[in-house]
Nucleic acid binder design. Sequence first.
RNA 1: GCCCGGAUGGCGGAAUUGGCAGACGCGGAGGCCUCAAAAGCCUUUACUCGAGAGGGUGUGUGGGUUCGAGUCCCACUCCGGGCACCA
Length: 822
Amino acid sequence: MARPFDVNAVETKWQQYWMDHGTYEVDNDDPRERYYALCMYPYPSGAAHQGHVRNYTFGDLIVRYQTMRGKAVLSPFGFDSFGLPAENAAIKAGSHPRVFTEARMAELKASLVRLGAVYDWRRTFNSHDPEYMRWSQSIFLAFLKNGLAYRAEAPVNWCPGCMTVLANEQVNADGTCDRSGDLVVRRNLEQWFFRITDYADELLADVDELAWPERVKSMQRNWIGRSEGVEFALTFAHDASKSLRVFTTRPDTGFGVTYAVVAPEHPLLDELTTPEHRDAVDDLVARANAATEMERTTSSSEGVGLDKRGAFTGSYVINPFNAERVPVYVADYVLGTYGTGAIMAVPGEDERDFDFALAYGLPVIHTVQPPGDFEGGSYHGDGVHINSGFLDGLDVAAAKERATEFLVDHAGGLRKVNFRLRDWLVSRQRFWGCPIPVVYCDAHGIVPVPEEQLPVLAPDDVVMDKTGQSPLATHEGFLHTTCPICGGPARRETDTMDTFTDSSWYFLRFADPFSTDRAFDPAEVAKWMPVSQYIGGVEHAILHLLYARFYTKALIDIGLATGVEREPFARLFTQGMIRYEGTKMSKSKGNLVTPEPYFTTVGADGLRLFHLFVGPPADNVDWTDQTEDMIEGCARFIDRVYRLCQYDDVFFHEERSELDLAVERAVHRTIARVTNDLERWSYNTAVAALMELLNVISKTARASTGIDRATLDEALDAMLLMLAPMTPHVSAELWEQRHPDAPSVHGQAWPEADPRLVVHEFVTMVVQINGKVRARLEVAPELSDEEASALALANEDVVSALNGAKIQRVVARAPRLVNVIV
RNA sequence: GCCCGGAUGGCGGAAUUGGCAGACGCGGAGGCCUCAAAAGCCUUUACUCGAGAGGGUGUGUGGGUUCGAGUCCCACUCCGGGCACCA
């Protein structure tokens, strides 16, 4: 494409200008209204791809737009620089992860600068900066001191490929590792946890108040998984002094209990197992232990029952509802980590119990009357209770209440709320992360590293190999230290923190990255928080957002973030993915389309405009053969603006006329539309409105009838002001050409629409006969319904279309429409 | 299985409150400029019948509400995403 100006020269000129002038630096004591715009902390994966371009184009538009709206806009940037890919690459290349990471950081940062994204670079930091690590560790110790961090042995998800423990969130539904795809296995290890479950209720309740996409909110609710029920005791048949506690959400189905189940790891299993069933039970337990968590918790696609494996323990318990003996089984479909690790089984109303009962020949009793067309199996709907003694005749809700009361009175029942959410496992047996700052002393046990010794930094002289252990675990210099309490020999913790901890508080530090004596000054942070607009991919809908919410609440509660809003992200926007031939673009698939070639052809402005214009920001974009043409179309639009600003082929006239008024009205209507569209994340229609405006201006100015000089100049200025957040480089360049003495376009105020010019002078009224359009007439907007009807019925096209038919009714909605019913 | 989205020309999409369906752009067709091309500019472009004027049809499918439905209600089909032995 031949361009009317040197795109690359213009773009680098303005990028340099913004950097040199600190245009987007903002101080914490800025008196203007505050706005905190933030794109999610990026992992430095290398040169930018179109997903980054899209993300940062939206973010940059908001920063520039809100600045023009007169706000003090906080726009920080830094890297989530710890993480597995760097470590794996370093192992492969035999180098240090830092070398790899910092090279990638430089690449991505250069791409973003080249895109024209602007930041307050004074505030930048990265997760692996010693200063940031110091406060990450300090926060860990504060959690430890306040009982929010603890160490426990737990069955954990171990990925043989990554050679580390994974959080539940990092294990896919099919039991494979989210990163490497290896099959995850279970192991028992001593691990560090954060007590996120203490916040389960608040994390769930506060979701309702968030201005987030409904989809993301529902994912969070789903993940937290609150369920209300009752926990009660099933007394042993052979020893009335002992009992098995179970949790259920369906106490109303108690009369349908035909057996009970304990998880293979249940502490009472041994006691419940009789000698003649010992072998079968041991066999089942061994098999369950060998299986992965996911193998145990995922039903086979073959369907009915056969995949649920269990064994009779030989013992019985008493069903408190009807005093009947029911057998106790051990089965792999009951999890030791949820509820009490034991259940009452009701095959009549529970699908899983039904499958198991079918496979093991256990009786099925229906306690809720299913509807007539019920096909059999278990029934989960509402209905009248049957076979249920004192509950007969009640619906599910009423029976639940009566049964709960009964259990509370007669079976040690307690109303209970259980959550699917588990505590957050934060230990990682990896090198490239933030070391957990504790030491182990034979005399004093777990001892926190004193604050003044932070940060604990990993040594540089490590051997990155594939032994299955972090190189820290075998590094003698790192490993051996002295106990801060007694000075005796001690061993350092060699695990590092999950990198999600780094991204759980970075947004707080961005508000006050200058503190040297603490992670941040809460008073400074409170000025900016919550983040006004958070932007990122939907892939972080559960993990990152939940952890960051937890950190914020926890930091407030332990006094480190006093006065800060409890919900960190007021508004969240999740942008669509860029896809290529139906799949997500990714480096591993080799289908990345990098922005660099476009920077040199259509420029950053052209590419930005494409991403804004291609469709709704929340929708996915399919990168196809057509995409190139659309990008060129966007560059073509920029060129047309450029040429018009040079007055190419423009005719001027002396006297202002109706033609000029029409242009002026179009300008103000466009200002109103674009402003509204930008506020509601409708960037594609905002661009369309500007294209329409250009068509109007250009048509008028290039017609032989000509345009008034002042009208054209005002229209072009308005155009450039509105384009400034979208195509910042060319807008700044043209503004400078037109206003050599005025500040840069980005220092100008956003234009205001004059309401008197926004309304149309005439509007097109449609006349329908039986709902079909038969005539269009130009009318004044303030026309009344009566006038509209009269006008419509007098119109000759309407009269001829009616052809003398008898009018039944006339519906008038002035000034838009009149519908004549015949 | 459950929960969220979504389905509109050849393509990306627009229609903010129930009121002109298809804005804007891409692609296509024709033209201007040019020795020629590129670039640029202009016209046209939902489908269909018609030489034309003009008519008919049309927003995944089938019903419904309404003077009027892409928009609201009911039933369904397909596509995308999330959750899925959590008792």
